[in-house]
Design a protein around this nucleic acid. Structure first.
Lengths: 218, 218
DNA sequence: ATTTAATTCAGTCAATTGACTTAAGGCTGA
DNA sequence: TCAGCCTTAAGTCAATTGACTGAATTAAAT
């Protein structure tokens, strides 16, 4: 009974893996659905269309595949953080689930580069925001972070939250790129890279905010 | 004598402007050279090819067009900074030239979104790095910044320099997007947005760095 | 005034793309 | 066992793309 379902699942996984790699290496829009199908070993040139639909749907499927294990790691860390008032604890909840997930997958990985591209593309960024940044777990992390600096105006908290996200996504992509190119990296492991990000982002969050004044020079 | 040169220059400018807008709104690889030519009012469907060559060359031309005025602003700010040992002064040299340039161009702008995409695309990122991040002025800024934290290991300084860049590029893109969509922005002006970034990036630079230890848990 | 050469225009080409169609394969379930 | 249907394969289609072609335009030089 499960033989068929397994085969289908395997095909879908092959397509997702091939797509993720090609997208990361050549760019999401530089790769056609056909190329993905062929790279996945499917003679059928419409395999992507059959299993996923449009390229947007394929991108969403890739995001979802990683969102699940990452969220599991997030939940564990949020539970550990409890009701901490230490910025570092919450920043770690933001950083470590992704870096650990990347570390778990071994080398090479493609998801960080893929993710950075998707987040930057006007037609695709909505997908990641919906799939990965609206979960209840993510809300709790943002909340925990905000409670560490209650005196900051909400707009500035939102701003810094955004900055932290950008740093994480794009620094992971950068490191992944370096690993793929056999280029030197500032840190020997994903864990250490995460530590560097946590240091920096904690500093970013704890930095004093210039009070906007009315008579400031243009 | 200059009539012809002027016409050609005008055509090139129209192509660059149209390309920049379409690239920012729809994505660099989602827009064909033909569409750029048509949007620029050129009946000739090979106008881009004739004037610039490949899409990569077109992207480079767009980057160059903005690099010049931005670098002028950088030079002015670097001169003001002198040999300051204040992180904020050097971070400002990194942030304000871009935000001022965007402010100078009025609303809407497209360069920040364009730039963020190009920086993230595996085939194009090299262009910006060459054209905008290797100038002597940029070197001096990085140098000034590094001298503010001489005790940090060079890899960590490189890492934080990278983080600062990512924050600037992508937060500007985010703000530009919000302006284009008539969405609310955390800050009323590019100048204020820059202040927010400078606060945060200064904090990022000044944050204490965890000393890597050998017996850290994996 | 006439020639020259750069620019713009219009048409065409092979190659590629997403989508569609049809047929074959093989697990599923009665 | 065997009919049914989901998956895969293979071929096709119109549309689009980058590139090439030659002609028309027109400022510039003689």
């Amino acid at each position: 009974m499960a033989v068929r379902a397994e085969r289908v699942h395997a095909t879908r996984e092959q397509l997702l893996t091939a797509a993720e790699r090609l997208f990361a290496e050549r760019g999401v829009f530089a790769v056609s659905n056909r190329q993905v199908s062929e790279a996945a070993g499917q003679g059928n040139n419409t395999a992507v269309g059959y299993h996923f639909g449009t390229k947007t749907d394929l991108v969403r499927a890739i995001v979802r595949r990683h969102a699940a294990p990452i969220e599991r790691l997030q939940q564990r860390m949020v539970a550990e953080a409890g009701d901490s008032a230490d910025v570092r604890d919450w920043v770690a909840c933001l950083v470590r689930p992704l870096t650990e997930h990347l570390a778990d997958m071994g080398n090479p990985t493609w998801y960080a580069r893929f993710s950075a591209q998707v987040m930057t593309d006007p037609a695709l960024r909505g997908i990641v925001l919906e799939e990965a940044y609206t979960s209840p777990t993510m809300m709790r992390i943002v909340d925990g972070l905000n409670r560490c600096r209650p005196e900051l105006p909400p707009e500035i908290r939102a701003e810094r939250d955004d900055m932290a996200r950008q740093v994480i996504v794009h620094m992971c992509a950068e490191r992944e790129r370096a690993l793929a190119d056999d280029a030197p990296t500032p840190r020997p492991s994903w864990h250490d890279a995460a530590t560097g990000m946590i240091d920096a982002i904690a500093g970013l969050w704890l930095a004093p905010a210039t009070i906007p004044t009315r008579e400031e020079a243009s």
